Structure formats: structure tokens, C-alpha cells
Amino acid sequence: MAGATRTTSSSAARWEVRRRHPLIPIGAAVVGLAALVFAFEVPHRHAVEDSLAGRTKAALTGAGIDAEVRFAGRDGTVKVGSADEKDKAREIALGVEGVRVVDVQAPPKVEQPPAATEPLAVKLLVDSGKVTLTGTVPAEDARGKLAEAAKQAFGAENVQDELTVDAKRVADDTDLAGLGAVVAALGKDTKAGVVDLTDHVVTLTGTVPSQEVKDKAEAAAKAAVKSGTVRDELVVGQAAAPEQVQTQLVALPTVEFENNSATLTPQGRAVVENAASILKANPNIKVSIEGHTDLRGTAEHNQTLSEARAKTVLDTLVSLGIAPDRLTSRGFGESRPKVQGSDDAANAVNRRVEFIVQR
């Protein structure tokens, strides 16, 4: 009886276990299936992502866009280097087969400030049948037209073209070729004539042989300057007043030297020659030649350099026939800047030689 009882108890225990855990075999099967799916799906998904990333990268590179490409499933993230490439990159990425969504990221677009602009600045120097063109114009065709007009009036062999082109210069409504007509009106007998166009204003200085020449030059200047101003300071057949001579000398271009040197450049020599013509036309005028430097270098070096440059100009004027007793020279180094600042633009203005008429 005791044995039957034990048998019965053991059977009941086994039945109880089966009754309490009926899903164990099913759970084991599910876990096994999930393991098989994971083992298959993860490598497959990575292969899809790598394929999409590679094909998208290739499409962008082919369009000239350098980008970083990543995919999570079929959803891509594309990083480009410029905001200007953003829309084009999105269009290309969405065109790749298999891509569902793409997020294109780019740095914010930085608005560039407008380029600095400067007014026209042109000078035509006329002396005894020769013309020197200096200054800056906004385009090559403008330079060509002005130079050609001067050559037609005086002959190509008598025209020295030193014009430069700078797109930052603002083209006004002045007819640059029309300035050639002003030169033609001044003619080959004009001494130390200057046609100075600066910011819509044309200033005429120099000594002309007759009132007729003066009137023709003024009329030609007014025809060239449509909405600007003409200042006629031409003198007829006589020496100019000191203030008129000063105006003529100020109107000359900058006297240029070799870098960190007292040696004149060819353009600098041409300017000194024009200064000599002005002084020859006005034999009673005496001038002080004053040298100035920019702020680069030591004060001692700049003082020495300014003195040497002023002396070079004096010696050149003497060699061109100006009496030495009409000339003095001195240097001020960096002590008298014309404008404040030490950038290239300020340095170009402050680095100068000035002709000061002695009253």
C-alpha cells in the first residue's frame, strides 16, 4: 500500500509539471527562429545600407559634389560642404534606386558683403604734343576706347598708356572716349595740360595758346560729362597764378618708386616730367618737394626713405631743366599721414611725394 502511494505521488508530480509549463517547447522554438532571423536580417540590412551609401556617394561625386553619406535602412543622411549644393544633392540622392528618404545637411549660407566700390579716377596729361594716360577704369573696353581716342588725336607714337583696369571702379555716365575729344581740343601747343576725371567731375588745368582752344576744350568736356561737373581752370597764353599751378600739380598722379627704394619707376618718371612741364610754363613759381611714407618699417628708416625720395624728384627736375634755386626738398617719414589706417588702401594714399607751391 505504501508502494502504491509512492507511485501515485510520482505520477502526479510529473503531471503537475506538464500542467504548469505547457509553452516551454513553443518558447524554445520562437527563440530559435528569432536567432535565425537575426542571423540573416542584420547582415542583409548592412549590405543594403552599404549599397545605398556607395551608390549615392558615387552619384553625388559624379555631379561634382563632395559629400559624407550614411544610411539607416533605406533612410539616408547626406552632409555637403556648401548650402548652394543642398537642393541639388537632395535631388540626386532621391534619384538613386532604393532610397526612401534623405536628409541633406549643409552649413548655413553666409551672405557675402558687397564688394567695395570706388569712383572713376582718370587723368590725361597733355604737354607739347604728347599725352600720358593714367588712372583706373572699370573695364578693358573702356581703357581701349580712351587710349584709341587719344592716339587718333596725337598719333600712337605720342601716347603713353598707363591706364589700369579694376572692376571695383564704378562706371558712371561719363563718355571716356569723349575725353579723347578734350585732348584733341587742347591740341599740341598746350603746356602742362591736365584733364582730371574724378567722381563725375572733370577739371581742366594747364596753359593753352588761345581763348578759342580753351572754349573748345571746355565744350568737349561738357559733352563727355553728361550729369557731372566741368571745372575749367585753363589759363590762356600766360603764366598761371600760384593757386592755379598748385591745382595743376595736385592733379598729377602719384609719383611711384621701386619698392622700399628711392628709384623712380617709369610711371613715376613720367609724372615728374609732367611736373617739370608745369614749372617750365610758370617760371616764377618755386616749389617744395615733400616726401612721405606709410607706417610700415621703423620711423628712422621711413624718415631716411622719405628724404631720399624727395631728393630724387628734385634731382630729376633739375636734370629736366628746372633751376635748382626754384626747388627745395624735405622728408617727413610717417609723421604726416594723409589718411588714418595701415591697410593697403591707406598705405597707398600715405606713401606719396607732394609738390607745394611757395607763396
Rank of each mutant, 00 (worst) to 15 (best):
A4Q: 09
S9H: 12
S9D: 08
A12G: 10
A13C: 09
V17I: 14
R18D: 03
H21P: 07
L23R: 12
I24R: 15
I26F: 14
I26T: 12
G27H: 13
A28M: 11
V31M: 14
A34W: 13
V37M: 12
R45F: 04
R45S: 08
R45H: 08
V48T: 15
S51E: 15
G54T: 14
G54L: 12
G54F: 10
T61C: 05
T61K: 13
A63D: 14
D66P: 08
R70T: 11
F71D: 05
T77N: 04
V78I: 14
V78S: 03
K86W: 02
D87P: 07
A89K: 01
A89W: 00
G95A: 11
V102Y: 01
P113R: 15
A116Y: 05
L120K: 03
L120T: 02
A121V: 07
L125E: 13
V126E: 01
V126Y: 02
D127C: 09
D127L: 08
D127R: 13
T132N: 12
T132H: 07
T132Y: 00
T132L: 13
L133Q: 04
T134G: 07
D141Y: 06
L146A: 07
L146C: 08
A147R: 12
A147Q: 04
E148T: 07
E148F: 06
A149P: 02
A150S: 04
Q152G: 10
G155F: 13
Q160F: 09
D161G: 12
D161C: 11
L163I: 04
K168Q: 12
A171I: 01
D175V: 06
G178Y: 09
A181V: 08
V182S: 01
A184D: 06
A184K: 15
G187R: 10
K191V: 04
G193Q: 00
T198P: 00
D199Q: 13
V202T: 07
L204A: 03
L204V: 02
G206V: 01
V208G: 00
V208T: 14
Q211I: 09
V213P: 01
V213C: 06
E218I: 01
K222A: 11
A223V: 15
A224I: 07
A224V: 04
V225E: 05
D232K: 02
D232P: 01
L234S: 05
L234T: 00
A239Y: 01
A240G: 11
A241H: 02
A241L: 14
Q244I: 02
Q248M: 11
E256I: 05
N260Q: 11
S261P: 09
E273T: 14
N274Y: 06
N274V: 05
A275P: 01
I278D: 02
I278V: 13
L279I: 07
N284M: 03
N284S: 13
N284H: 05
I285K: 00
H292K: 13
T298I: 04
S306A: 15
K311M: 10
V313I: 08
D315K: 00
D315V: 00
T316R: 05
V318Q: 08
V318A: 03
A323T: 12
P324W: 03
P324R: 02
R326S: 02
L327D: 01
T328S: 15
R330E: 09
G331Y: 00
F332T: 04
E334L: 08
E334T: 08
P337C: 06
K338A: 08
Q340D: 08
S342G: 03
N347D: 09
N347S: 10
N350L: 03
R352P: 00
V353I: 10
E354W: 05
R359N: 11
